[in-house]
Nucleic acid binder design. Sequence first.
DNA 1: ATATTTCTCCAACAGTGTAGGGTAAATATG
DNA 2: CATATTTACCCTACACTGTTGGAGAAATAT
Lengths: 125, 125
Amino acid sequence: MPESVGQFEQIILTAILSLGHQAYGVTIHEKATRLAAPKKVSLGAVYVTLDRLEDKGLISSRLSDPTPARGGRSKRFYRLEALGERALEESAATAKRVWETVTEIWGDFAEGVRRRPKWSPVRPK
Amino acid sequence: MPESVGQFEQIILTAILSLGHQAYGVTIHEKATRLAAPKKVSLGAVYVTLDRLEDKGLISSRLSDPTPARGGRSKRFYRLEALGERALEESAATAKRVWETVTEIWGDFAEGVRRRPKWSPVRPK
DNA sequence: ATATTTCTCCAACAGTGTAGGGTAAATATG
DNA sequence: CATATTTACCCTACACTGTTGGAGAAATAT
């Protein structure tokens, strides 16, 4: 049974996955911000979560060489470890089930306006 | 900007939504267990979370009359409030984005075996 | 030297997740 | 009726996750 991750951890793992070999603090923050919108994501939250995920062995990191650009100090790049992949699989499967369940009732509201519910909102006796 | 909910809270809200007017502790527990599988969900966790969601005004409850069945004591039925609907909408939209992002890389692994990644897992320099 | 830019990291606290056991209210049974 | 059985609710206590805000390090630019 894989480690189970929280909501924000899931977002961070997803960001790392999608960034491939360009995953470091700043880019992860950008990706995470898009995933979590309209909610704001602070940089501090990202780094703290990266630390914890690394402690749990779900991701690993290595420090790069500096790049020849203004402010181009070295970056800490992250990658998903096998444990992290399994945790994300499980967690994403639950996300899918949630989305599908909500969609069955409300329709695909993310694509526009929310539709009518299947049943009328009658209260039990 | 809607209240934001955690992972388990999202599952509970989703369970309530999908149960319609049959949402009370035991049925919510069953739904939540299916949504969160293979992870186990304890009944205690469900009730604590229901309490907190009610305190925050995302759901409301009312006590029913007992039913004439063995052990048929009265149930506390829950329903989504407007705040809860908005919180779930936002939260489910993020779940969708996570699922889609993961799917772009790994394919729809929930339907069977995980496919190959789009890029090779090369580390940065 | 000093300013500016990019980037990492820490400390502290609030909020969420979880287990396990306790309690209550109904019907069934001898 | 006393006790068993079934269904259901609720609390306590603690671990883990989420979040903010700011400090500080390492580059290039002027």
